[in-house]
């Protein structure tokens, strides 16, 4: 994967598959570091499962025997002097279950890769799971970009899905305008 936004998409898909109804994606950048955090209220993992995450031959899926999402992310983060931290509470343990994945990257490191199209990542997630309440926050030194699906649903009501092409297009423009403002 050659764009950081694809890693964000891949990691957030884990939350979707964990049956989460609330998923927050937070990116925080300064001159030196970029940290992204994906938090969900999905089914969570047991301690044993969390320990095995770095192992590419561990996966919960049944269609293949390898799981490369977290190992890919960890490799990229550590190559840039950053890290990946995963904390999780299994639904078997507590009613307050869910998973938080945080990854930090050194932006000035030669192995850091471009952000790519993060707006496309957000749109892809909403298109695939319009019922999930995603919140997206990207804090840069000079600007903040924010989107809350719950806020949009309050206006649109139940009958209009966020996956409707007109709505997705609006979401794309809404985010892109906020980013364009950041470059002024």
């Amino acid at each position: 994967m050659d764009e950081l936004s694809l890693y964000v998409l891949d990691i957030t898909m884990n939350s979707v598959r964990a049956g989460a109804t609330e998923i927050s994606i937070t990116l925080v950048e300064d001159e030196e570091w970029l940290t992204f955090t994906v938090s969900d209220n999905g089914c969570g993992m047991t301690e044993e499962q969390v320990k095995r995450l770095d192992n590419p031959f561990f996966t919960t899926r049944t269609t293949r025997k390898v799981g490369l999402g977290i190992p890919f992310l960890k490799m990229l983060a550590e190559m840039t002097e950053g890290y990946v931290k995963v904390t999780s509470v299994s639904e078997k343990v507590s009613e307050e279950h869910g998973t938080t994945t945080q990854a930090k990257f050194g932006k000035n490191h030669i192995d850091f890769i471009p952000m790519g199209d993060i707006v496309e990542t957000v749109k892809t997630l909403i298109q695939g799971s319009p019922d999930v309440n995603f919140t997206f926050d990207h804090t840069m030194p000079d600007r903040e970009v924010h989107l809350s699906c719950a806020e949009l649903k309050e206006i649109l009501g139940d009958e209009i899905s966020l996956a409707e092409p007109e709505i997705l297009m609006w979401i794309g423009e809404f985010l892109n305008e906020q980013y364009a403002g950041a470059e002024e």
Binding site: L9, D10, F72, T124
Partner: peptide, 14 residues
Amino acid sequence: MATCGIAAGARPVL
């Protein structure tokens, strides 16, 4: 749209 799809370029295809 799993890791394999995303890494191979599924996002622009979708």
